[in-house]
C-alpha cells in the first residue's frame, strides 16, 4: 500500500532525507500549477518553487502528522507567493479584509460538486487573471486544486464562511466577464 503524505512527512521528520523526494514528486507539479494560476506572471516560478520546498523541509518539524499534509504545504506556498506579490509594485494586497470581520452566510461547498467544478473551470480559465488575488486564490484552490472549504480556510487563515463568500463573489464576477465577452 502506498504511503500517505503524512507518513512520508513523519519519516522526513525522523531524519530520512531521501523520503523528501517523494513529497517533492507528489507536490512539485501541484505547486507549479497553483503558482501559475495564482500569480500574475513575471515572477520567477522556479525560484519560488525552490523556496517553497526548502521552507517545507526546514520547517517540517512544525507539521503535525495527525493533520493533513496537503493544506500545510499549500499554506507554505500561499505565504511564499504572497511575499513574492508584495515585492511586486503592481500587485497591491489588501492587508485588512472586511469579509473576515462579520459572520456571513454562504452556500455550502457541496453545491459546488465535482461536476460543477469541471464545468466552471472551463469557463474560468479565460477570465481568471481578471480577478484580484483576494478572489483568485480561493477559486484556484477550490476549482483547480480541488481542496475543501475547510482546507482553504486553514491555508488562507480565514473563516470557512468567508471562503464561501469569496468563492461565490468570484464566480459571479467570472460569470459577468463571461456574459460580457459572449453577449449572453
Amino acid at each position: 500500500m502506498e504511503k500517505t503524505d503524512e507518513q512520508i512527512a513523519g519519516e522526513v521528520q525522523a531524519g530520512n532525507k531521501e523520503a523528501f523526494a517523494f513529497l517533492l514528486d507528489r507536490y512539485e507539479s501541484k505547486m507549479r500549477r497553483y503558482g501559475k494560476r495564482f500569480l500574475f506572471g513575471g515572477d520567477d516560478l522556479d525560484d519560488l518553487i525552490q523556496d517553497i520546498f526548502i521552507k517545507v523541509y526546514t520547517n517540517i518539524q512544525s507539521f503535525d502528522t495527525k493533520q493533513r499534509f496537503s493544506p500545510w504545504i499549500y499554506r507554505v506556498a500561499h505565504n511564499t507567493f504572497i511575499n513574492a506579490m508584495k515585492k511586486s509594485i503592481r500587485d497591491r494586497l489588501v492587508m485588512f479584509d472586511f469579509d473576515t470581520v462579520f459572520p456571513t452566510l454562504s452556500t455550502d461547498e457541496k453545491t459546488d460538486d465535482l461536476a460543477h467544478r469541471k464545468e466552471a473551470k472551463e469557463k474560468m480559465d479565460k477570465f481568471l487573471d481578471r480577478l484580484g488575488p483576494k478572489y483568485k486564490e480561493p477559486i484556484v484552490l477550490f476549482f483547480y486544486e480541488e481542496l475543501s472549504y475547510q482546507e482553504i480556510s486553514d491555508i488562507l487563515r480565514i473563516p470557512v464562511s468567508t471562503v464561501g463568500v469569496r468563492i461565490n463573489r468570484a464566480k459571479r464576477q467570472l460569470e459577468k466577464y463571461y456574459s460580457q465577452e459572449y453577449h449572453e
Binding site: V12, K17, A21, F53, I54, T58, Q61, S62
Partner: peptide
C-alpha cells in the same frame, strides 16, 4: 532542492 538538502546546505529546524 534535493542537493541542498543532501549536502546539508539546508537544515531542518529542530522541534
Amino acid at each position: 532542492i534535493l542537493e541542498k538538502i543532501k549536502t546539508g546546505k539546508e537544515k531542518m529546524r529542530p522541534h
